[in-house]
Design a protein around this nucleic acid. Structure first.
Lengths: 168, 168
DNA sequence: TTTAGTTAGTTAGCAAAGCTAAATATATTC
DNA sequence: GAATATATTTAGCTTTGCTAACTAACTAAA
């Protein structure tokens, strides 16, 4: 570690600049980390741990899904998801049911209470970001919106096409 | 919760649209989550757990810092950071030293090995994003860069003012 | 300069969250 | 219908996180 003036800067110049996309990727990565680190502070009030909150979020937004799908989405192993969902169920935030056509499969859905609780926490997170965005000029906000159009194509391909029926 | 066609879509319309900044905040939040969820898959090869990797990242990029500062940055309590840093030190990725002017204070720094290991993992993460960005048209990439200029003001306020800038 | 108070970090011990391996319950195939 | 495959669960262990209590080191007051 013989770096004369100190440690590396938080993002770009390190070593050598590689390419415009590489450079933008680096900045994007860093911005995402810092953004989420900031909003995570709002989660305390939910009463749920980070893993529970994260799983509940997937259950609410990706609609009813199987335990395996949930485990995959959360990037954890099946036994871990079994335990998380058991806890959510015990708290009345989610329910499990066997798929009739294949009873090995367990479908998880959010309860109204689960959706409500998630929404409240989510509102706090979003508000923290919105408060900052509200200070931008109209055209700067428009720039961010255009960037989001592009990013959504990359990061959440069809994404919101998932719905699935709930309340039904 | 009587929503006719199913649960809420992943982002916007839920309930009612609130304001442009609110709506953009929602999308930004979602994009950040999905982006990081995707790159996290690249971390397996590092051989480090998520908490260790995250702490090492802060040590490398924020430069030498105290245990307390690190605990604060990582949003964990002091005993947790004590343990994480002890493990990083045992693996030869970081070192601890008492500050001479106040020997209660412990300064953590990354070793060359720690910086190298982090950089490799980081390179994989960044590459995953860069590969996607590389498919954008030049002007779309420019849009994202302009959005990043704005976001960096919000999310990492003075940010890179932390350690000692390099090449800037 | 001792004594009391404060601050930074550590140690102890417990709960939550993660994992692998093995078990169970259903399907599927031959 | 016996063997095989798949989805989840159970068992048991490791890691990560917490609070409470302790130690070491600095600061202030008398």
């Amino acid at each position: 570690m013989k770096r004369a003036r100190g440690p590396a800067p938080a993002t770009a110049p390190r070593a050598a600049r590689r390419s415009p996309s590489h450079d933008a990727a680096d900045r994007l990565h860093s911005a995402a980390i810092h953004l989420l680190r900031r909003v995570r502070r709002e989660d305390a009030g939910s009463g749920l741990s980070a893993p529970h909150l994260s799983a509940l979020s997937v259950i609410v937004f990706r609609g009813p899904l199987t335990l395996g799908e949930l485990a995959h989405a959360e990037q954890v192993r099946p036994p871990t998801i079994t335990r998380i969902v058991a806890a959510l169920e015990a708290s009345g935030l989610a329910t499990r049911s066997a798929r009739p056509t294949d009873r090995r499969i367990t479908i998880v859905s959010a309860t109204a209470k689960g959706a409500r609780l998630l929404d409240e926490g989510r509102r706090r997170r979003i508000a923290a970001i919105a408060d900052e965005l509200a200070r931008l000029q109209r055209r700067d906000l428009a720039t961010i919106e255009r960037a989001l159009d592009l990013l959504e194509r990359i990061v959440g391909p069809p994404q919101r096409a998932v719905p699935a029926r709930n309340a039904s």
